[in-house]
């Protein structure tokens, strides 16, 4: 039994320490966004954020996560109150089948946390580990750029409100 902090909530997990985070998220916590794609760290569908960094949840055992903060796509926002990156992907219609998209968004989100104004080349380099089979790449790139702009605006408005 260990405590796992996901999307700000503490969960008591009854699973072996070698259980990959992906299965805990999907099976124990009933979260949908992180997807099983290969289980081998080759495709990025299972990407989540751990302590601000993009992590492949299919090859990240529970034992590594004691005391860390896990964020999944569900933790960013909802349909009615979407996070900037979610809004950006909706506005750009950046999905076809969408199976890879949650992983793409989480890796992009980690990039934007670290680098709020990435260049196109930086976005491409960052997303290199993640595969998309429908060929939605152009839209994904546009959506990440849009998310960066939205976050910038959101930050600005927060700063205005707080009088900074």
């Amino acid at each position: 039994m260990m405590t796992l902090k996901v999307n700000g909530q503490e969960n008591h997990i009854d699973a072996d320490p070698d259980t990959p985070l992906l299965y805990v998220l999907r099976d124990d916590l009933k979260l949908n966004a992180a997807k099983f794609g290969c289980g081998l760290g080759q495709c990025g569908s299972c990407t989540v954020i751990v302590d601000g960094k993009a992590v492949l949840s299919c090859v990240t055992p529970l034992v590594l996560l004691e005391g860390k903060q896990v964020t999944t796509l569900e933790g960013l926002g909802t349909v009615s109150a979407p996070a900037p990156i979610q809004r950006a992907f909706m506005e750009e219609q950046a999905a076809q089948c969408g199976y890879c998209i949650a992983g793409m968004m989480m890796r992009a989100q980690a990039l934007l946390l670290r680098n709020p104004k990435p260049t196109d080349a930086q976005i491409r380099a960052e997303l290199q580990p993640n595969l998309c089979r429908c060929g939605t790449h152009m839209r994904i790139l546009r959506a990440v750029h849009r998310a960066a702009r939205l976050m910038d605006t959101a930050d600005a408005s927060v700063n205005e409100r707080s009088g900074q």
Partner: peptide, 8 residues
């Protein structure tokens, strides 16, 4: 391909 573990 081997995933890197720097982030995790």
């Amino acid at each position: 391909i081997m995933p890197g573990f720097a982030a995790s």
